[in-house]
Amino acid sequence: MRLTPLFLALTALSAPVAASAAGYDWDNWPTKVAFSDGTELAATGNIAYDWNRFSDSSGIEDADAVRRKEFGATLKKKGVYDAMVYYDFQSDTWLDVFVRFESKAFFGKDVGRFRFGYMKTPVGLDANTSSRAGSFVETALPVQAFYEGRRTGAEWVLERPQYLLQVGAYGGKDLQGDNPGTTQAVRAAWTPFKAAGDVLHLGVAYSEENPRGYRDGRDVHHEASARLRARPEAGLTDIRLVDSGALVTADKIKRTGLEGIWIKGPFSVQAEALQTTVTRDGKPDYTGDGQYAAVSYFLTGESRPYNAGAVANVKPAHAYGAVELLARYSRIDLDDADVFGGRQHDLTIGANWYLTSHFKFQANYVKADASRRGVHTTPEMFEVRAQMHF
C-alpha cells in the first residue's frame, strides 16, 4: 500500500504525544556534550518524509518519499566562535560548512561576526530560513526561481537592536563543483522593535553574480548561463510549469529583494518581492520578477520566534503541542524580452502541528494557475510532511 511509509512516519512522530502525557521530556535530547572550558559539541539533523497528491487533470505523478535527510555537527564556544558541517544525504548535497568568529572575543570590541566557508547567499528571506523551520512545506515560487543558493566565501554581519547589516563576497565553484564565478552581496534590515512576540523587520538585499564558463570532464566548453524556473510548490516532482530555459551567454546576474516580517503575538505576516536581471552578451537584458505574501496564526497562542533576521520553529507551550494555520499567495513572471518562460500564481492554505520542539506535522493544499507559450494549466496539490529535527 502506497500510504504505508507515511502512516509509519505519522505513528512514529505521534509517540511523543503519548510520552508527554506520561511525563517524558521530549525537549531534552542528549545530542550535546559540553567541556569544562565552555566548548560545546552537538549533533544536528533534519529528517522529513513527504506525501504529495496531484489532481488527475494535472498530468503530474503522485509521490511519497523522504524529502530531506540532513545530518551534521556543530562545535561552538559561546561568545567566541561556532562551526558547522552539514550534509543532505537524500539529495547528496553539501549544506553549511563554515566557521564563524565573534569579534569581541578577539578585538575586545563588538564590530560584528565574521564567517568563512560554504554558506547561504543573502538575497531571499525565506530561502535563508532553516529548512527545518519552513512554515510551508515548500518555498514560494519566486524564492525557488531567484535564490542563488550556497557559495564559498566570507561574510560580515553586524546586528544591533534596531538594525542588521550583512556583506558577503563569494568565489569559485560550489561544493558540488558547479556554478563557477564570483558574487558580491549586501543585505540591510531595520528592526524598530524586536521583542518576543513583537517584531517588525523591513529589509532590502542585493547581489551581483559574475558567472564563468567552464570545461567539463570531456574537455567540452560550456558558456556561462543562467536559468530561472520553479516547481509548482511541490517538492516531489521535477516538472516546472514556468522555466526560462538556459540564458546564454550570461555576463551578470543581478538579484534584488525586498522583505518584511511582522509578528504580533500569535499573528504574523511575511512577504517578499524578488527580481533577477540577467545581462547577456549580444542579446537584450532579461528580467524575471515575483512576490509572495503569507499570514500565520497560532490557535494555541504561541508566537513565531525571531532571531538574527530570520524566524524559527516554535516551542509548544502545551503538552498537546502547538497548532498553526497559514495562507500564502505567490506569483512569478518569467516572460520578458525574447524569453517566454511563463507566468504562474499559487494559492496555498495550510496547517502545522508542532508536537514538541523536535517533531512537526505539516499539511498544505496548493491551487496553481500557470500559463506558458499558450498552454494554460491549473493543477491542485495536497501535501503532507512528517518531520523530526534536532
Rank of each mutant, 00 (worst) to 15 (best):
Q90R: 14
L355P: 00
E223F: 11
A337V: 13
A310F: 03
V278T: 11
V157A: 05
G197D: 03
L274F: 01
I253W: 01
L158N: 09
S207Q: 13
T348W: 04
T139C: 00
E138V: 11
S36K: 13
A133K: 05
T277A: 12
E155W: 07
M84A: 15
W26H: 10
E102D: 15
V186C: 04
Q166F: 08
F390N: 03
D88I: 01
S303H: 10
A250Q: 06
L13S: 10
L75M: 15
A34E: 09
I261S: 02
T191G: 06
D243F: 03
V199D: 08
A154C: 03
K120P: 00
V85W: 12
D238Q: 13
Q176C: 01
D289Y: 14
V167A: 15
G203P: 01
N210S: 11
L236Q: 05
L236D: 02
V137C: 11
D289G: 12
N313T: 08
D198F: 04
D338Y: 10
H389K: 11
Y286W: 14
D174C: 08
G112A: 09
T182V: 01
G177N: 12
H376V: 10
Q144R: 12
K32D: 14
A22G: 06
D62K: 05
W51A: 13
Y24E: 11
S20V: 02
A234S: 09
W51R: 03
L141N: 00
V339N: 07
P142W: 01
L95E: 10
A140W: 00
K367P: 01
A19V: 01
H201L: 03
D82W: 14
V80I: 14
V204Y: 13
V269G: 05
A337Q: 13
R150T: 01
V167I: 15
K109Y: 08
G203E: 00
A310V: 11
T276A: 11
V97H: 14
T182L: 03
T277I: 07
F35G: 10
L299V: 12
L141K: 02
Y365I: 08
D251N: 14
P379N: 02
D198T: 10
A370G: 05
F89H: 14
S130I: 02
L158V: 11
G257T: 05
